[in-house]
């Protein structure tokens, strides 16, 4: 196995009773790649992501994340990934610094590392004066940017982003994507889901899940060519409309 494949999945499947949530999906993600993971509600994105994060055991198939097996080495996987979602990010009732100290602590970073990194991030985001403010007092856009910084605080190999930009204003959304680009350039692999189809264009490659299977996987421009579409939105609609399944 080559070392630049950060995620590999082979015939990965998850069944709940007689319902196949994820149906034999196979793909690879390269180091430093921005990988868009799209699909309609209920297509199986969340289940697939949970398996890759080591939170849920696959029913069958193989997968490795950061070189670790999802069946046996999920503790090691957790140490090497970061995670952020729109719903769960930072603790509202802790200050920015307290949040960073907490997450750094969880990943076993030393006090000095945490301190240096905190200073660095706050400076980078121009939020030096906000370090001691409660997270809940910050605007949503800042929160999401901070949450992303915290998700890559321990310099993981891969960061999983679950709809990170929902409801964020267009300017902040772009600043957020700038941060993603920067992280990818630094060698962190990005695995991201989104409902904004223009964001799909920012990804190096995009996979589209329909009814538990990956129906398409390619670069955005190639996908548009294949499906004779002018935008990713059209590609997505063409594929997702075929769905027969109606779960949430």
């Amino acid at each position: 196995m080559s070392t630049d494949k950060v995620i590999t999945a082979e015939q990965l499947t998850k069944r709940f009773g007689d319902f196949t949530a994820v149906d034999h999906i196979s793909f690879e993600v390269q180091k430093g790649e921005i990988f868009g993971f799209l699909g309609a509600n209920g297509a199986g994105k969340t289940t697939a992501m949970r398996m890759l994060c080591g939170l849920s055991l696959p029913t069958s198939g193989k997968a490795t994340v950061a070189g670790f097996d999802v069946y046996k080495e999920n503790e090691k996987i957790k140490k090497n990934i970061g995670y952020m979602s729109q719903k769960f990010s930072l603790y509202d009732d802790l200050t920015v610094k307290e949040n960073m100290r907490f997450y750094g602590g969880i990943y076993g970073m030393s006090d000095k590392q945490i301190k240096d990194k905190t200073v660095f991030i706050l400076k980078h985001l121009h939020l030096e004066s906000e370090g001691n403010k409660l997270v809940k007092s910050l605007p949503l856009g800042w929160k999401q940017k901070l949450a992303f910084s915290v998700a890559i605080f321990h310099e993981p190999e891969i960061v999983f982003l679950d709809e990170p930009t929902g409801g964020v204003d267009p300017v902040t959304r772009r600043e957020f994507w700038n941060m993603i680009y920067q992280a990818a350039a630094d060698g962190i692999t990005i695995f991201v889901t989104t409902h904004y189809m223009d964001e799909a264009e920012y990804c190096n490659r995009v996979s589209i899940m329909v009814d538990g299977r990956i129906d398409a996987l390619d670069t955005p421009s190639q996908l548009k060519k294949t499906y004779e579409a002018t935008s990713m939105d059209e590609v997505f609609l063409k594929l997702a409309r075929k769905a027969v399944r109606n779960a949430d």
Binding site: A40, N41, G166, G167, H195, M197, D233, F236, L237, A240
Partner: peptide, 10 residues
Amino acid sequence: TTGVDAVSRK
């Protein structure tokens, strides 16, 4: 339409 996929939104 918040949190709803592109198909349902349409």
